[in-house]
Design a protein around this nucleic acid. Structure first.
Lengths: 329, 329
DNA sequence: TTGAAAGCGATACCAG
DNA sequence: CTGGTATCGCTTTCAA
């Protein structure tokens, strides 16, 4: 690969001039500029990003930390981030941390060794691990986070609770995500608020994690513990789909005997039958907006202290029963 | 962040000695080594990878090109690659090229600007775009590719054809992937061979791409064109799941009236009901082995000219009918 | 408007 | 065993 020196020699100017021409910085005569352009073309020259990074101590790359890349929700998120980033010429360094603190530490360190311009993090504690690199929290936000973008979990919980309350709830089971996750707490609070407001009773069922591998066995426990349930709010769409499947196996009619509500609006929600009703979290948008904000901070050096909270909405497919109008009592 | 110079000053030795101590290269006295270690600890020093890369003209990062990161098949592949890479201290730069040549070119260029150590590519033509960077083709291999890892597409096609032939095929429709993809051709050849050998007749149905967005409308065309079909071999699990769903909607019993075979063994195949039978492609392994081989080539500088072909197998769930034993005629 | 030269942070050669 | 120094490719003062 040609270097700036090769270009300068071919063009008959100094490397300084080439650099100026390339970056439109400082004065460059039209004549020099033309010579540089020709040489660049002739040599198929592309500036080396590593050298640029070494000088600036900041690369054109952003590190993305996701808990589990097999989970379609995070895939959408990554996809949004990637689109925003590549639009502005940034690259994406991927870190799959698997909800493991050691891997998180490993990747943050690795990112900083590579002078990433910023980090998009789905674990709120990353801010403490970093040595000055801008961090944008996405999806998972903790109470003391003051910058990030996520979807409105409490509201999502409320919508979920109302959707069930509206539809002849019966015996309601609410699956609860890992308690150390604020998003799980918020969502639960919203759901319980909505349910209580409508005087719907419910049972809570705790799940360990959001990981795909843990899902199958959890479902079994669920059905044996609550064989009488007629409504269930799942922690995510994977559980939602598995519950529908298990119901089919047991000859339970969905939604008439058991209605199921997922969460996330993962891509496969529309692939199952009956279609999984769910709460749409704008994962792609969270990724896209998170990346956009991060780049803004990187370029301005000013860290806005803002939390962007994106609205969620109910996606109705066939796994919920018909809505029952309130009667005049 | 501390630099090697800071360490050398604190330790009272030269940067050369620090470097030697850090990399276990050349002679370093025990005494010097201890001083260096202390200084490193005191300063929380981590060597800057960018500077290392500039010197070596080769980073500890690998670029991964995937056609569509929303597709769970590529997600597994990426996951395997990531595991192998992070085990050996390599980072993963992601490029989502969306089957678009311009984006492919953009990313290859971007990867080389960053001196990636190698590229894992799902588009066979990447080898021609590269300026000396080692390329390992994964998943999609063309005829003139001489290095790569993929799963045995022809054999997968054969297995698929046999699975259908074994099960009272009736009116068979074979979906055919994009013809510019060798994997699609090979798979088709295998399927047709198996079907012909058993004297099963079939119809071909061409699909445009593997992209998720294009799937929904294709299904409609399929059902209206072949309302009488009783067996279908889908191009992938997404189509498989959608076909099952559409069958349910139309009151067609799966598998009795219509049996469905997917391809890929995507994570959600087990989430639908009835469970989608499919051909398991070891996506994770392709990614893992591809990355491992690539790293071997990177480190030896010698490019083995090898194609690794991984076996595929039938995953039986409920979307296929019972096997019919051959009768003695 | 231009070019010489000093970094950026590490590595590795060569002399001592 | 150790330290000085050239080098990787680029950017940016500073003087001319």
């Amino acid at each position: 690969m040609a270097t700036i020196k090769d270009v300068s020699e071919l063009a008959g100017v100094s490397v300084a001039t080439v650099s100026r021409a390339l970056n439109n910085s400082g004065y460059v005569s039209e004549k020099s500029r033309r010579k540089v352009e020709q040489a660049v073309k002739a040599l198929d020259f592309v500036p080396n990003e590593v050298a640029r990074t070494l000088y600036h101590k900041k690369s054109k790359m952003v590190g993305l930390l996701v808990p589990d890349i097999s989970n379609p929700y995070f895939t959408s998120l990554a996809s949004g981030a990637e689109d925003a980033l590549s639009n502005k010429g940034y690259g994406l360094l991927l870190g799959n941390v698997q909800d493991d603190m050691d891997k998180t530490i490993y990747y943050v360190r690795n990112f900083e060794q590579n002078n990433v311009a910023g980090i998009l993090a789905t674990s709120p504690n990353v801010t403490d691990l970093v040595h000055g690199t801008p961090v944008m929290n996405i999806d998972r936000i903790s109470n003391d986070t003051n910058i990030g973008v996520h979807s409105d979990d409490y509201q999502g919980g409320v919508i979920a609770g109302q959707a069930i309350a509206d539809r002849n709830p019966g015996n309601v089971v609410v699956m609860v995500g890992p308690k150390y996750l604020k998003i799980a707490q918020d969502r639960l609070a919203g759901t319980l608020f909505a349910l209580d407001a409508r005087e719907v009773t419910y049972q809570l069922f705790q799940t360990k994690s959001y990981r795909v591998e843990d899902a199958a066995e959890t479902i079994d426990q669920l059905f044996s513990k609550y064989p009488q349930m007629t409504s269930i709010i799942a922690t995510n769409d994977i559980y939602g789909a598995l519950i529908i499947k298990e119901a089919f196996k047991r000859g339970i009619d969905v939604p008439n005997q058991l209605q199921v509500l997922g969460y996330d609006n993962s891509s496969f929600g529309g692939l199952v039958y009956p279609g999984l009703s769910t709460i749409n979290q704008p994962a792609y948008d969270v990724g896209y907006i998170g990346a956009t904000l991060l780049m803004k901070n990187i370029e301005n050096q000013q860290i806005d202290k803002t939390i962007v909270k994106l609205p969620v909405n109910l996606v109705l497919r066939e796994s919920l029963r018909e809505r029952v109008e309130e009667s005049y009592e």
